[in-house]
Structure formats: structure tokens, C-alpha cells
Amino acid sequence: MADTAASGPGMPQLDVTTFSNQIFWLVVTMVVLYYVMSRVALPRIAAVLADRRGTITSDIAAAEEYKLKAQAAEEAYHKALADARSEANRIVEAAKADMQAKLDVELAKAEAEIAAKASESERRIREIRDGAMDMVSAVSKEAAKDILESFGAKADARSVNAAVAARLKGGAA
């Protein structure tokens, strides 16, 4: 190939005279790049990544902890609520019992009073009735005596009394 011969080899890749130059600079480059990467860049990035992983795990652990705390708080709240409810129930029960007892006492007192008043009344009624009965018998005896005297009959007081009493008793019976 004529023109190839004129302008050097067609493929610069096959120009052996430049190989040593390329290889020399490649080796220099690779060594520099290797040191830059392995000494500076990669440890830094590894540290950042490890840092981030650590932060994420600790954050997750903290979140877990907060969740547990929240659960505990919720449980405590529920327990307090139940306690308060049972306490309220207890107080209500006690108040109820107290009131019932007071009521019972009052009722008993009232009943006793009523009973006392009733018996008093009964007694007085009986007294009145007895008084009335006595009056009736006395009046009846007087009346009977008077009637007998008006008829002119001499009435024996004792027999009249007995008769009247018998009649009253029978009337009452």
C-alpha cells in the first residue's frame, strides 16, 4: 500500500515504537491512581458508608425502643384507666352501701317511731274507749236507776248495776 508506506503504518496501535512510551505512562498512571484510590478515596467512602449504616441501625434501634416505650405507656394508661374505673365502682358501691345503711337506720327509726306512735294512739284510743265504756256503764246505771225510780220501783243499786253490766257485756259481745 503506497500511501500507507508514505504516512507511516496505517494503524497507530501497531506502531511498536510508541509501546514503551505508552506502557511507561500507563504504569505511572496506574500506580498513582491506585495510591490515590486505596489511600484516600476508598477509605473515606467506606467510612462514610459505615457511618451511615451505623446511624441507620442505631436510629432503627432507637425507633424500636421508642415504640416499646409507647407501648408501655399505652399499657400504663390502660391500667390506670381500669384502676380508676374500679376505684370509682368501689366508691359508688361504698356510697351505695353507706346510703343503704343510713336508709335502713332511718327506716328502722321511723318504723319504731311509727310503731311507738301507733301503740300510743292505740293506748289512748283504748283509754278513750275504756273511758267511754265506763261512762256508758255509769250513764246506763244512772239511767236505769232513774227509769226504775220513775216507774216507782225501788231499785236495788247493786242488782241494777249487775244487770246493766251484763247487758253491756252482751251488747258488746
Partner: peptide, 10 residues
């Protein structure tokens, strides 16, 4: 271009 010459490769 000798082995140490700065070239466009460099």
C-alpha cells in the same frame, strides 16, 4: 517519542 517523552498518552 521515546519511552519517557510526555505525549498525548500522558
Amino acid at each position: 517519542v521515546s519511552w519517557y517523552t510526555p505525549t498525548n498518552v500522558t
